[in-house]
Design a protein around this nucleic acid. Structure first.
Length: 424
RNA sequence: AGAGAGUUGGCGGAGUGGUCGAACGCGGCGGUCUUGAAAACCGUUGACUGUAACAGGUCCGGGGGUUCGAAUCCCUCACUCUCUGCCA
């Protein structure tokens, strides 16, 4: 959520930023919002003034009662009934204005960083770099959805039977590959200084608002209505919300956490031609890295995260490229996002396997996540996160890129985790 | 799931209708003392909003009510703890 003070003081910047996201009627909406805020403050100060008068009369009555001046006290009481009536009207107005303002603020996405390219869709994303050779496969090479059947390692039919589409069952070497990747990713994160967290995978509504999934992505999360809990779409939600309503001592920064969780996404309305096999699932595993930093350090940290994630892809010997997302393709809450894509040889396309973002103060403002600066002033921190990494598409790429007529070779780094070197 | 108890500032913990944003203790910060440190002593120490700065306003789990006035009384919801039940 954007800060009102930023909207007030840097209005032009905000409008320009929203426009970069192709946000419709940015100038009008911001103006309307500022007007609303102006009205809110007006009503607020009128209300406060009445309140102040009423408070002082009440105090006076208290003193009179104590001194036994009953009659005088009674006459004061009569005075306040009118004040009370007015205050009630104003406080109702105030409540309505605040609610309206809050809803309007929820609807505004984050302001993109200046380096974010203009653009409408994925085609306008900027390729920052590309790494590794694109493999040439043997004749008869297959996409992963055929390979998993051939080697009987991931079973969509069984998942469909016990749950539904998009919930695969991992078996045999497929299951071990999952476990190996999770352990490898967690071990690497710990080596890089991240602290491992195992959070709950259901969160309450407040947490959903804290990181911005609600109200924006309501309907994309599975909702356990009996208890009003949400199944997390990413470990970002619980791990970042750990710090909701906190003022972090500056010496504890930066906070670097990692966690493995299953992730659940309804993906309502997004099924189409490109989502076969492991490309898009309702449930998948992911190791996430989350950092909370001082505002002045956050972009440095984003670069650090990006190169950490690239290091993982290099160790897995996967060809990849890094994209800087354009204004139209960025997530709602992000100020700058790098997407990492691996090349899936048999599908002949790039698959997004990671997304690393700096949210600046957007999440922190909702979370009330702050620190005290040198002057003792309370200020919002910056939050960042990145996938490191999401499993399914990594598995797809490993299977497709490393296939041979004799089986599928596993990346060397995984051998100790797997206990085998080849599938098949 | 049933019965009971509870939810107060960074922590512990008072406070049952009036000057309470809240005693006291701990912790933190500043100082005195000390070669330095500890101890002791003195002072200080919540958040949000608002203002040019003051002032003012709000916050004692959330919401609602009673009252001139609520941390304190009433209703309601959530959560925590204890016992019973069930259970990986």
């Amino acid at each position: 959520m954007l800060q009102l003070s930023v909207l007030r003081e840097q209005t032009d910047l905000v409008v320009a930023g929203l426009t970069k996201r192709n946000y419709k009627n940015a100038a009008e909406e911001v103006a309307a919002l500022l007007d609303l805020d102006q009205r809110r403050r007006q009503v607020q100060s009128e209300h406060d003034e009445l309140q102040a008068r009423s408070n002082s009369i009440s105090k006076e009555i208290g003193i009179l009662m104590k001194n036994g001046e009953r009659e005088k006290a009674e006459s004061y009481k009569a005075q306040t009934s009118d004040l009370k009536q007015q205050a009630k009207t104003l406080s109702d107005q105030l409540g309505a204005l605040e609610e309206e303002l809050q809803q309007a603020l929820y609807k505004l996405p984050n302001i993109p960083h200046e380096s974010v390219p203009q653009g409408r869709s994925a085609e306008d994303n900027e390729v920052v770099l590309q790494h590794g050779d694109i493999p040439t496969l043997h004749d008869g090479a297959q996409p992963h959805w055929e390979l998993i059947q051939k080697y009987d390692i991931i079973d969509f039919d069984l998942g469909n039977k016990i749950t539904g589409a998009g919930f695969p069952v991992y078996k045999k070497q497929g299951a071990r590959l999952q476990r190996a990747l999770i352990n490898f990713f967690l071990d690497e994160a710990m080596k890089a200084g991240y602290t491992e967290i195992q959070p709950p995978i259901l969160v309450n509504e407040v947490s959903g608002y804290g990181t911005g999934q609600l109200p924006d992505k309501d309907g994309q999360m599975y909702h356990a209505t009996a208890d009003n809990y949400y199944l997390i779409p990413t470990a970002e939600v619980p791990i970042t919300n750990l710090y909701r309503d906190e003022i972090i001592p500056a010496e504890q920064l930066p906070i670097k956490n990692t966690g493995h969780t299953p992730c659940f996404r309804r993906e309502a309305g997004s099924w189409g031609a490109d989502v076969r096999g492991l490309n898009r699932l309702h449930q998948f595993d992911k190791v996430e890295v989350v950092q909370i930093t001082l505002p002045e350090k956050s972009y440095e940290t984003l670069e650090e995260m990006s190169s950490y994630i690239q290091g993982l892809l290099q160790k897995l010997e996967l060809p990849y490229r890094v994209l800087r997302l354009c204004g139209g393709d960025m997530g709602f809450t992000s100020a700058l996002t790098y997407d990492m894509e691996v090349y899936s040889a048999a599908q002949g396309r790039w698959l997004e396997v990671s997304s690393a973002s700096n949210f600046e103060t957007y999440q922190a403002n909702r979370l009330k996540l702050r620190y005290k600066n040198e002057n003792g002033k309370t200020q919002l921190l910056h939050t960042l996160n990145g996938s490191a990494l999401a499993l399914p598409r990594i598995v797809a790429a490993i299977l497709e890129n490393n296939q041979t007529p004799e089986g599928i070779n596993m990346p060397k780094v995984l051998h100790p985790y797997l206990g085998f070197e080849k599938i098949g």
